[in-house]
Nucleic acid binder design. Structure first.
Length: 211
DNA sequence: TAAACGATTAGCT
DNA sequence: GCTAATCGTTTAT
């Protein structure tokens, strides 16, 4: 049993949303999905790695949309990377979906990844932002759509708790000192190192802090 | 109008 | 470990 996250969930700062997204279920109706194990937050201010750092452009316009919007863009001319837009409309921040653990019935995900023979290791199906986007069958027509029944893409909470660790973001050349990559520590389905234990820091908010 | 640049991945050495 | 592939967008001329 699981319930889709309300859009209010995304109307918060992206680091908070990112930390809460680890362990949640991402699912495309009719295709499939799995449990999020790796995401990255991008900030509206003071984040040179954010696509909106130089202001609004044709590409990043959807980052300014309402919370729960999808920002999809093409990376290296090959891959479609999925972001979930955070904060209220007009504030450009988002969470990049970098990896998820495929759900048991992963046949559709395999087909989307071009694995018709079914011999791709499960850990290779969605362990990376490009792989995750391809597994979900996303392209530029998804840019600007919104999470929910209409689009067919949802993020849900199935009640299962997940530990969260914070590390430096991957694949960027600017602002790589910010620890805004959130992972399920020890997961086999992360995109790449640090899989666990390296360069990690506690979550921004301690889960059970007492005075 | 031209050139450069990736929030990457697969395949090969 | 190294690099080609590949193209929408941004930035420079």
């Amino acid at each position: 049993m699981s319930c889709p996250l309300p859009h209010e969930f995304f109307a918060r700062p992206s680091p908070v949303v990112a930390a809460d997204l680890v362990g949640k279920i991402i699912w495309r109706h009719g295709i499939g999905g799995g449990r999020l194990v790796e995401v990255e937050a991008y900030l509206p201010n003071g984040d040179e790695a954010c696509h909106a750092a130089q202001g609004k452009t044709a590409r990043n316009a959807m980052m300014f949309g309402p919370p729960g919007s999808l920002y999809v863009y093409v990376s290296y001319g090959v891959h479609h990377l999925l972001n979930l837009v955070c904060e209220e409309e007009g504030i450009p921040s988002a969470v990049l979906i970098r990896a998820f653990q495929p759900w048991k019935a992963d046949l559709n995900l395999r087909r989307m990844r071009g694995d018709d023979n079914g011999d791709m290791p499960v850990r290779d199906i969605a362990s990376g932002p490009g792989r995750a986007g391809q597994a979900l069958g996303l392209d530029l027509t998804w840019n600007g759509q919104s999470l929910g029944r209409e689009s067919g893409l949802i993020v849900a909470d199935d009640g299962q708790r997940s530990a969260v660790q914070r590390t430096a973001r991957i694949g960027i050349s600017k602002a790589d000192d910010l620890l805004l990559r959130y992972i399920a520590p020890g997961s086999e389905f992360l995109s790449r190192s640090p899989r666990w234990g390296e360069n990690v820091a506690p979550p921004p908010v301690a889960p059970d802090r007492r005075r």
